[in-house]
Computed example of a mutant assay.
Amino acid sequence: MSQDLSSSISAIGVNGLVSIVVSLICIALAWWALQQVKLDLIVRHPKGPQGKLLHLLLAVVLGRFVAEFLIDYITWSQMIRYMF
């Protein structure tokens, strides 16, 4: 019984770590991709602190959406083993 509980807690920890790593990687990729977007067409001073903050927030939002999709996909692929 305690071994099953220990195994479950370990699996939850690994899933949490994978989620953190995937989220950070996706945010970094979104930041990198957003470097090609011309914010000067939307923002008056894209090099100012508000422009940089907007760039960061866009990267976090876009990266989180992509990470959420990837984490869901990993979870769903792990559930396939219970079909058979």
Rank of each mutant, 00 (worst) to 15 (best):
N15P: 03
K47V: 13
I9S: 13
L34S: 03
V43I: 14
Q3M: 09
K38C: 08
Q3K: 13
V21Y: 00
P49D: 14
Q36T: 11
S8P: 03
D4C: 09
H45K: 09
I12T: 10
L29A: 15
G16C: 04
T75H: 04
Q35Y: 04
G63T: 02
S8G: 05
Y82S: 08
G48K: 00
V43N: 12
V61P: 11
M83N: 11
V37Y: 09
L24V: 09
A67Y: 02
G13I: 03
R44I: 08
C26K: 06
L17T: 13
D4F: 11
F69Q: 09
L39D: 03
A30Q: 02
F65L: 15
Q50T: 15
R64A: 15
R44H: 10
W31E: 08
Q78F: 07
H55Y: 05
V66Q: 01
G51P: 03
I12M: 10
S8C: 09
V61R: 04
A59S: 02
T75P: 05
I12R: 06
A33Y: 05
Q36D: 13
L70K: 00
L34N: 07
W31N: 08
I42C: 10
A33K: 02
L41Q: 12
M79V: 14
V61C: 05
Y73S: 11
L39F: 08
I42E: 01
L39G: 02
Q3H: 10
L41M: 11
I25Q: 03
F84G: 06
D4K: 12
M83E: 15
I27D: 00
R64W: 07
A59T: 00
M1A: 15
L29Y: 03
V18R: 11
L29S: 12
L58A: 09
A67F: 00
P46M: 07
I27A: 00
Q78R: 00
L24P: 01
V18P: 01
Q78V: 07
R44P: 15
E68S: 13
D40L: 01
L17K: 08
G13S: 04
V43C: 11
F65T: 13
I20N: 08
L34V: 08
S77V: 15
S7P: 10
L34A: 02
L58H: 03
A28G: 03
I12A: 10
A11P: 05
H55R: 02
D72V: 14
L39H: 01
D72F: 08
W31C: 06
L58E: 00
L70W: 01
P46S: 07
I27F: 00
I80Q: 12
C26P: 03
H45F: 12
C26H: 06
V21F: 00
L58Q: 03
A33Q: 04
Q35H: 10
V60L: 01
G48V: 04
S10Q: 13
Y73K: 07
I80W: 12
R64G: 12
L54G: 13
V60K: 00
N15C: 07
L53Y: 06
Q3W: 08
K47R: 12
A67W: 02
D72T: 10
I74C: 04
H45E: 14
G16N: 04
V43A: 10
Q35G: 15
W32E: 10
A28H: 03
L53D: 05
Q50F: 14
Q78T: 09
L41H: 07
K38D: 15
D4T: 14
I9D: 05
C26L: 11
S8L: 13
R64M: 12
V14R: 05
L62Y: 04
Q78K: 01
F65G: 13
